[in-house]
Design a protein around this nucleic acid. Sequence first.
DNA 1: TTGCAGTGCGGCATTAAATGCCGCACTGCC
DNA 2: GGCAGTGCGGCATTTAATGCCGCACTGCAA
Lengths: 162, 162
Amino acid sequence: MAIGPKLDRIDLKILAKLQEAGRITNVELSDAVGLSPSPCLTRVKRLETAGYITGYGAHINLNKLGEFLTVFTEVTLGEHRRGDFSRFETRIAKIDEIVECHLVSGGYDYLLKFVARGVTHYQSLIEEMLENDYGIEKYFSYIVIKSPFIKHHFPIQNLFGE
Amino acid sequence: MAIGPKLDRIDLKILAKLQEAGRITNVELSDAVGLSPSPCLTRVKRLETAGYITGYGAHINLNKLGEFLTVFTEVTLGEHRRGDFSRFETRIAKIDEIVECHLVSGGYDYLLKFVARGVTHYQSLIEEMLENDYGIEKYFSYIVIKSPFIKHHFPIQNLFGE
DNA sequence: TTGCAGTGCGGCATTAAATGCCGCACTGCC
DNA sequence: GGCAGTGCGGCATTTAATGCCGCACTGCAA
């Protein structure tokens, strides 16, 4: 096997396959990567416990559930001391509508992704943050008009040369 | 059942559950939502064919596969005629390292998310785009230093009031 | 109010998949 | 050249996925 030193080609195939077909049966997966079911399952379990696979999920088409508003928000904190960042991160993590948080280099500190029911809802979330000392100095909102594509998989094979 | 008019509470439970545990067995799922396996599976299949569930995937821990660089890039096109947008979207969709594309309102046109092997790799991708007439007037890169969190599920229940 | 038709659920039998166990082949090390 | 460790395929057993069938509940109509 591998994992300790590095994953072998079969492990990468398994990851790539599961990434785009998370609910594939082990029998099909084993066939796709060229193994019999037993060792294939062993590898999957090992990839899971070793942390290469952190979980599985269904991709839900939010638009079919109603009208949703996605917003990317640039946030600049007022203070940049040790603790200001972690406190901010801890607090926003608890807000369900903030689905992504990225600390970036450049003109501002954080890029957040919101999914709200509409502009009113989004506005109320922002006001809540401004009024309750999250440490935000300023922010700027970019409302998503449409998302031509969101790939649910990274090019594992390509990034390695395969 | 529902779906035609609107999803009932059980359907939402199924979506919420599958979103965070895509590989749960139908037996467990049925138990979690309070149904027997048969009707539960029927609902899942219907949600899939009706387009509420667009697919399943494993969440891969890219950092364990090596050092990767995530970059958010703001792009402004030089021309904004009908066709300039669709042409740009079509072309960048073919670039594996661009995993998300959002058309936004505000100071620029597109917010792109890249996953590359490093700054050199990212730079080569950008140069490739600039040299080959993608219609880019200007761009700005925000390198992700760390992502405190990326939730792989939207608050389905909460957004509807549970 | 009583009967009829349509819809969705739970129970049961059958088929397929997930798991665990065992012996064999390949590789590195004595 | 023989021995120990690792990973694979095959096989038996336990579970889950599916498809079928009759029953209960709801709305509609006489």
